[in-house]
Design a protein around this nucleic acid. Structure first.
Lengths: 202, 202
DNA sequence: CCAGATATGTAGTGTTCACTACAGATGTGG
DNA sequence: CCACATCTGTAGTGAACACTACATATCTGG
C-alpha cells in the first residue's frame, strides 16, 4: 500500500496566509474563496488538510499562539513586575502596529461576537487570551513572593488588568491608532503596576 | 393627499430589540431573520423604516450612544480626574455585566473586523468610541488647568488610556468575566490616573 | 365615499456562502 | 507495470443570506 500523492503546498506557509485573512476580516468575515486564494490552493486541499473553516482557524491560532508564547517567555523574564508590564505593553504597541501584519491582534480581530453556528469561536479566542493572562499572573505571584510587589498587591487582578489593556490596545490599533498613540497608552498603564510595586530597591 | 397607513410598531422599541441582537451576535453575525423576529416585524417594514441592515445598525448605534452620552455627562461631572476615571471604569464594570443587556459593549461587540462589503462598520463603531474619548480628554484638559492633574500629565494620553481600558473590559465581559473581575481591573486602572494626579488636596 | 399615500404579510428573488463529488494526476509498495 | 492511496482542479451542491414585488390593508384629505 503506497503513501499517495504528496501535498504540493507547505502547510505552515499556507497557514500564515490564512492567519492574515482571519486577522484582517475576522472569522465570519473571511470567506473560503479569500482564504484559498491567499493560501494558493483550492478548496478540496483546504478541507483535506484542515477539516473545515473552524479547523483552519484553530490551526492558524495554534501557529499564532506558538509564536506569541515564545515572545511571552521573554516578557516574563524581565526582572520586575513593572519591567514585565512595560516590556509587554510597549512590545504590544509595536507588534500591533507592525506593517508586516494586519493591525491589532488575531486573538481579538478573529471574532469577539459571532453568529449562530460559530458561537464557540469567541470562546476559542478567549481561552487563548486566558493562557497569557495565566502566565502573567504566575509571574506576578512570584514578584509578590520576591517582595517586588507590595503585600497589598493582587497578582491575579494585575494580570487581568495588563491583559485587558492589551486587548484594548488591539482594538485601538485595528481602528487606526498609530504606534505612538499605543505607546502613550502603554506608558500610562505601566504606572498602575508601578503603584503596586514595592518601594525598596530592585 | 392622505398620510397613508400608520406604522403599527414603535420604532424605538423595535430598535431596542435590534440593538440587543447586534450586541449579542455582532453586525455580520446578526441575520435579518433574527432581527425581524426580535423586533416583531416583517422584512418590508424593516427596510421601509431603516433602509437596509447597515441603516438599522446606525439607528441602533444612535440610540445606544444617546443613552450612553447621558451617562457620560454624569461621569465627567465628577470633581477630579481620578474620580472621573473611577466613576467611569467602575460604572462600566457594572454596565457591562448587567444581566438586562448582553455582556460587553455594543460599540465593541458590534464588529471589530468585518468582511468585504461591511468594511465601514468598524469605522462607524470606532468613530463613536472616539466621541467618548474626546469628552474624556476635554475633561482631563480642564483637570490639568485646575491643577488637579500634574504639570507632566498628558490629558490626551490619559483619555486614550481610560478608553482603551474600557474597551478591554468590554471584551473580557463578553467572554465571560464576572462583575468582580471587571471591578478589579477598574480599581487597578484608576491607580495610573492617580499617579498623574497632583498631590495637593482636592 | 373616494383618491392618494403609506404600511403590512406572503412569498419569493438572485447571490453568496461553506462544503463536496468526481475524474485525473502523482506518489509508494510489490 | 500494477494495485492502492492520497492529492489536485473543475465544477458544482443545497442552504442561508440580504433584500424586494406585489397584493392587500389602513389611514388622511376632500
Amino acid at each position: 500500500m503506497g503513501m499517495g500523492r504528496p501535498r504540493e503546498f507547505d502547510a505552515e506557509t499556507a497557514l500564515d496566509q490564512a492567519m492574515e485573512v482571519f486577522w484582517r476580516h475576522g472569522y465570519e468575515g473571511a470567506t473560503i474563496a479569500q482564504l484559498t486564494e491567499a493560501m494558493g490552493i483550492n478548496p478540496p486541499s483546504l478541507y483535506a488538510c484542515f477539516g473545515n473553516k473552524e479547523g483552519l482557524l484553530k490551526a492558524a491560532l495554534d501557529r499564532y499562539t506558538k509564536l506569541r508564547n515564545i515572545w511571552m517567555d521573554e516578557v516574563v523574564a524581565a526582572p520586575t513586575a513593572r519591567a514585565v508590564a512595560e516590556r509587554m505593553l510597549m512590545g504590544i504597541a509595536d507588534k500591533q502596529t507592525d506593517p508586516a501584519n494586519p493591525p491589532g491582534c488575531l486573538l481579538v480581530q478573529g471574532g469577539i461576537a459571532c453568529g449562530t453556528g460559530s458561537e464557540n469561536v469567541p470562546f476559542e479566542l478567549a481561552a487563548r487570551r486566558a493562557q497569557n493572562e495565566d502566565q502573567l499572573r504566575d509571574r506576578f505571584v512570584r514578584a509578590k513572593a520576591e517582595g517586588d510587589l507590595k503585600e497589598s498587591a493582587d497578582p491575579a487582578a494585575l494580570a487581568r488588568y495588563v491583559s485587558a489593556v492589551s486587548v484594548g490596545m488591539g482594538v485601538m490599533a485595528s481602528s487606526g491608532a498609530d504606534r505612538e498613540a499605543l505607546r502613550q497608552v502603554a506608558r500610562v498603564a505601566v504606572q498602575a503596576v508601578e503603584a503596586q510595586s514595592s518601594d525598596r530597591p530592585q
